[in-house]
Simulated assay, not measured.
Amino acid sequence: MTERKKLPSQRVTPSYNKLEKVYTPKDAVKKEPAQNTLVSARSLKRVVTVPNADPSVAWHTFAQRQSQLRHVRSRARKKPVKLVPRTLVQTGVRATNGRIQAVRRPLPYRSSIPRRSGLRLRRRSMIWKVVGAFAFIACLIAAINFALTSDVFRLHRVSVMGTHNNGLIQNVEHMGIQGQNIFLVDTGNIQARIQESPLVASVAISKQFPDQLTVTIVERRPAVLWQGPQGTFSVDTRGIVIAPVSQTPGAEQLGTIVDTTKQDAKTEPLLRPGTYLKNIDVAFASNVWQRVPKVAGIDTFKLYYDGTMYASTTSQTGEVAGSRGSYIIESPDGWKAYLGNSHDANSLDNRLKELSEIVKLARQQQMHLATIDLRYGLRPVFTLQQ
């Protein structure tokens, strides 16, 4: 039989309890007695060594650490809170011991309703609701009375914005608006009264609490000057007569249209500020004044209007058109050009281009023009002086 090799013995060391291998010489293994051959091969020899340090020293160190920790904890302790027995709210004092019973006060009157019944609470809540409603109504009446009668809400200032016309500003300020209550003032009536002026195009009124009213005015802008038998007046693009030429600022920069319509003295309408010129396209006339120098190249001319003349010789359907009035250009050279009006199918720029070509042709061929009729659409007609 083969002999099984024995493992080396181990021993415990004081540093971290590590096991150290203890080797025995091979000769010692061979000299073992024969009676040990029956011992199990797994049994090992244990060698215990006693450390040189005294174990009591480690114990004393642990005790010192425990006493030091207890000392630190005793220092960190807060002052103990004084415990006071609980008491009821009705007493208002601290109880010395135990719980104080609540003092039951007798009712000021005797009632047949039991104490625990809800009818008494309902009756009390209803009374408070009625009292609160009356108080709210009284406060509301007092507030309305203060708002309508107090001088705090009376108009003391009227601001007019959007215009520099001193006469118009004074008329608005002297309309009796000052002194009225700001809640009762009729802004619609004031707006209608201001808009009756021919100088005003639109009005907007706003209230500035507590005592100011702001009136914003948009003035009418004159487009042309309309000259008739009754005088010369400024007219806006809608055909509303604004004011006489003497009261129109910047009148020297506006073009003048002379009305040559022949009417009876009885049927002739009165021309004054605020009058509406019916069947007259003032915007077209203003456009003629601006486009003739640019398109036709004619800087000096006069513009007339004849309300009895046909606006065009033929309409778009080929039928004779009704009399709507025609604008006439008169040149310093002595010729007249009949433009028609805005209802013509041919555009104004096309008519002015035709006028420019005819004038150039007459100058090249040294012809003396008498009339140029541009109301025939794309076929203009001109006549020569005899």
Rank of each mutant, 00 (worst) to 15 (best):
Q178C: 07
N346I: 11
V160I: 01
R11H: 02
E357A: 06
R124N: 14
S331N: 07
Q101D: 12
G118R: 12
Y23W: 15
R42D: 10
T267C: 00
T300R: 13
P198L: 01
A138S: 05
V218W: 09
Q170P: 04
R105F: 02
K30I: 04
M161Q: 15
D151F: 05
P106V: 09
M126F: 02
R65Y: 06
R157N: 09
S74P: 13
T187L: 05
V295K: 07
K360T: 06
T149L: 08
G334Q: 01
G162E: 03
A223K: 04
A223F: 06
V103Q: 12
W335N: 08
H343I: 14
P14V: 12
P80I: 07
F134P: 01
K207A: 03
N181R: 07
N181S: 11
V103D: 08
R122M: 14
V152N: 14
P51L: 12
K360R: 14
P55T: 11
R75I: 00
V50P: 08
G162K: 00
I217S: 12
A311G: 01
A63M: 13
A147I: 09
T314Q: 11
W226C: 09
R291T: 13
V47N: 06
T187F: 03
A201I: 03
L121C: 01
L374P: 06
H368L: 15
I205D: 04
S342E: 14
A345E: 13
V29S: 14
Y23P: 13
P244N: 13
Q316T: 03
A192Y: 14
K21S: 14
A142P: 00
G132A: 15
V103K: 05
P380N: 08
H368F: 14
N145G: 15
